[in-house]
Design a protein around this nucleic acid. Structure first.
Lengths: 346, 346
DNA sequence: TTTTATTAAGAAATCGTTTACAATAAATGA
DNA sequence: TCATTTATTGTAAACGATTTCTTAATAAAA
């Protein structure tokens, strides 16, 4: 059917093994035969069959990607295309290709991952999220299969190679930022508490308050299911309090967008009535009205480094696991206002 | 190393071929031996090696996905996660897995696709976009490799199986919608003219105007490079005209968002000063302030059906190519205002 | 009882590579 | 001149499945 290494061998009058060596550019083959073989390949339009190669090699040169469940609204977050860009850049550099694992339920996804691992479809896996008590991660660990995580694994983070931001610090920075601008009634709107990133950011927020001697109020902390409906509820709760907050630390740009839309409906305006800082700094943050002050977590690098670590791991699975921390940076736009003295009274 | 079919065979005291038949649930094997073999598989924790299988079978049970260049901002569009959801749903149903082709430049992407095809990594390909004069599509056609396109191919659309909306009609509907509400100064803000979808929508817009005897004005048609900066320029142009438009047909929700942000800056409000209808109805349309009236193009179905067609094609490559048209529907929200009589004077 | 079907399972070839191990020929050195 | 390197290529056995023939055993038919 298709042209194989044998056809090339025949035409070039050499053995198949020689052709294989030419492909690998093995120095033990003379330049002369190399030329002859290459001409034959050219003439026949030969291309190696990757399946055969993987079989013989026991390596696939592909890495598996585990994204959140396709049913999960979180997938709509522009975070993913961007992290994918980082991943694919590094993968391309090293001539690795990408295999996508999907599924609607956690069970379906686990099946998919088990298929990748057992079926030897991939050499390693990068997990694009980090959830508390995740079965997939548990499985990979138990199998001792090379993988890296984007975000911080909750259970034994020290034995799992991962790349993450210092989310604790980032949230603290943001909260400090507000405090520095005179805010004291600062609320925290987090995402799904199953995500480690949420709890990290919440701790950072708490710490900043504590350091500034601002009392932590339970009713200033809400968690929403990431997309619109949730955002609306949260805003309702927050702003029907006797003392509504003047500033919001929001765990995600998209959530901030939803909140702003609700605020708008309620006749509150940003930043006059409420200041907002959110996380991720996806392109949309710039689009919002007003443009959102957001902390840039360098999503591209998260992906790029995750693959980098994974490749090291694939190369030597016994290598010590490590944690790579990607720097963040708050980028100022127009969603934050400085309170003046008279407003500061609580 | 890993447990193979031979190990199972040995333990179950049968030949490897028998094990293979048990896996395929071949009726020529007695229930009794099937049970024995299955027990052995269980005991050893056997899982078939997909590479070996693909090699023997000449089929990979995986489909390749060609997305826009990872450098392309368009990738940030929530269109993609949603279409991916459709794709992965159908793929899962039929036990196909997904292979991702990426690349920063068109050349890089073409290399990737050539790799998939020649290296027999995938059984078929779905193209997630349709661009004018696309090399990848040309390559696939020339190779007679099974593929389907989401969107309408410009060159010989009749010989390429594709799934698309009736974008001409959709744009006409939207424009008619505006006309029905008394608008006459209707502008069109399109995306990249290389994308077939853009030209289709533009024609629909024109047609509606013509039918309503509203003159087509060149200065009411602008094209922007999809993301923010472009959106801003376009708005500037449009609203610095002597007779600025009262309604905007915008080719994409995200673009509409950018435009609204600029409008806000200029002190114009939606829908009081300008009405907007955009396309795609991604979740964000609901978030915007005000929530956007948008035409739902049923993105999920685009993906789902594309895979459906592809699988038919893989099954029988000689099958006639077809065009599947996914219905659309404009969903009304709050970005459109009805002009009253006094305003209608031009 | 012999012949013919039928059923169940094994033997061996195949898919397209890679690679350990030979093999050959030319070059070197004593 | 003959042993020994060295450089180059070939042989054949993996890699882990599938699948086409066979074959052995049993049941049915003659």
């Amino acid at each position: 059917m298709a042209v194989t290494i044998k056809d090339v061998a025949k035409l070039a009058n050499v053995a198949p093994s020689t052709v294989s060596r030419v492909i690998a550019n093995n120095p033990r083959i003379s330049e002369q035969t190399k030329r002859r073989v290459r001409e034959a390949m050219e003439e026949l339009g030969y291309h190696p069959n990757y399946n055969a190669r993987s079989l013989a090699n026991r390596s696939t040169q592909t890495i598996g990607l585990v994204m959140p469940s396709s049913a999960d609204k979180a997938l709509q977050n522009p975070f993913f295309p961007e992290v994918l860009r980082g991943i694919s850049t590094k993968a391309h550099e090293k001539e690795y290709t990408l295999y996508l694992s999907t599924g609607a339920t956690e069970e379906e996804m686990l099946q998919g991952v088990m298929g990748m691992v057992h079926g030897r479809r991939v050499d390693g896996i990068v997990m694009l999220y980090s959830r508390i008590d995740d079965k997939i991660m548990a499985f990979l660990e138990q199998q001792n299969f090379p993988f890296t995580v984007i975000g911080k694994p909750l259970v034994n983070p020290d034995s799992i190679t991962h790349v993450d931001n210092d989310n604790f610090r980032a949230a603290k920075d943001v909260t400090d930022h507000f405090i520095g601008k005179g805010h004291e009634r600062i609320a925290f709107v987090g995402g799904n508490l199953d995500l480690v990133v949420t709890v990290d950011r919440l701790s950072g927020y708490e710490k900043a308050l504590r350091e500034a001697d601002i009392p932590y109020r339970d009713d200033y902390v809400v968690h929403v299911e990431f997309l619109k409906e949730g955002g609306h509820e949260a805003v309702m709760e927050l702003f029907s309090l006797e003392q509504p907050p003047t500033a919001l630390v929001v765990a995600d740009d998209l959530m901030a967008l939803g909140i702003m839309s609700k605020l708008d409906e309620m006749g509150l305006s940003v930043p006059q009535d409420v200041s907002i800082i959110s996380f991720n700094n996806v392109m949309l943050a710039e689009y919002a009205s007003p443009p959102l002050t957001s902390v840039d977590i360098n999503i591209f690098q998260l992906g790029y480094q995750a693959v980098n670590c994974l490749l090291e791991k694939i190369d030597d699975n016994e290598m010590a696991s490590k944690r790579v921390c990607i720097p963040h940076q708050v980028v100022d736009r127009w969603s934050v206002r400085t309170l003046n003295e008279s407003e500061k009274v609580n």
